[in-house]
Design a protein around this nucleic acid. Sequence first.
DNA 1: ACCGTAAGTTAGCTTAACCTAAATTACGGT
DNA 2: ACCGTAATTTAGGTTAAGCTAACTTACGGT
Lengths: 229, 229
Amino acid sequence: MNAALLHEPLTRSVEDYLKSIYRLSQKGQPATTNDIAHQLDLSAPSVSGMIKRLSEQGLLEHIPYKGVVLTLEGRHAALRTIRRHRIIEAYLVAFLGYGWETVHEEAERLEHAVSEILIERMAEALGNPRFDPHGDPIPGPDGSVSEVVYTPLSEIPAGEAVEIRQADTSHPDRLRYIASFGLKPGTRVTVVDRQPFRGPITVQVGGQSHILGHEIAMLLLCARPEIAS
Amino acid sequence: MNAALLHEPLTRSVEDYLKSIYRLSQKGQPATTNDIAHQLDLSAPSVSGMIKRLSEQGLLEHIPYKGVVLTLEGRHAALRTIRRHRIIEAYLVAFLGYGWETVHEEAERLEHAVSEILIERMAEALGNPRFDPHGDPIPGPDGSVSEVVYTPLSEIPAGEAVEIRQADTSHPDRLRYIASFGLKPGTRVTVVDRQPFRGPITVQVGGQSHILGHEIAMLLLCARPEIAS
DNA sequence: ACCGTAAGTTAGCTTAACCTAAATTACGGT
DNA sequence: ACCGTAATTTAGGTTAAGCTAACTTACGGT
């Protein structure tokens, strides 16, 4: 019952695990060992080991062979890190000439090194934004998140016009590929054609049309006609 | 012969050691185990252990029971870290409302997390400054130290706070005399009063004030916050 | 010239975070 | 209902970086 109050500083690794678990949990299910290992590019036994430690620290609940769910404290820690990450991204794009597709890597390292004070100064300099350059919501200092439901471009029916809100990947080469079509948060696109069976999607972007594979289209989260399949 | 070229990323600890050793070496003598341990707030055996590793990596030369000296490679690594540190300090003071007295701690963490790219962007935003908010010179991106402009204490205006860097004499009696005031490389002093016509200088050293003759003050080379006379 | 103290090193242990190989568990398909 | 495969955990090992306790070396003072 100590850790909750006198929150000892978490290590870089711990922050990364919590962030990853938070992200995976957003899909409704408990996060699994394998998914975490895959996201963080670690072996499954490493994740098992860390889960044990985090569970002892009271940051998550573990049901063996089933998965993990963050405790309130774990969720708050995750949100603090995510807030840092997204404010840093917004700051680097706004003031230091970064592009939204290149900024992730830098923020990934800085998020573990900045003080609360610096983050609040950056947030202030930005006018306390609620969304980062990728369109992701920035949690408040108190841990409040504005939750948004987006639909993958791959599920938008032909004929529909939508707006790209975020690219659901942090792979730099994918981000660059996506950016090469002029697809970034805020871009308006019209789905011209959609082939069945995970086939390609044809979209119109600013007068030009492009053909996207299903895998890429799945990553492009959009707002927001009614959901159809 | 590999490490020099494909410079694998150094850990946070290693960077801290190299920085500390570089600073201690500036005083002319090899850095000693105890001095390093004291500066980094670690035990002497921990330092001994790290010295062994760094020496195997070719970052420094170790003469047992005598002290350590950085190799060319170690010096470059130290200067890279110091450059990062000082640019970060300058940036935080210039753009994010930090005071020069509060900025050190933040820079101490960030210096290990920023990319070269970010550092160069910050440097550019600052107009590629050559001195940080404390008046310390910022090493160039190539590892060149802009020749430290040491100024004799006798030319420091009243009111200014400086750090002694070197006593420019080899007369043992003068050195002893100087040392008797607690004035040694690294000591911070404030010039309280400076009389004209090669008159005496009154300085404050660790709470006590002393009056020095012009001849002695000329020998004490200092690093200064600003260039002015 | 010696000898005591301070400085430095060695020995041996701890913790966090990773790994591979081996064992275990859960679950879907016949 | 069982059985194989995939997911997970356990076992055991490594590395970096720290610690204390015990030993060794260097040097200044009489």
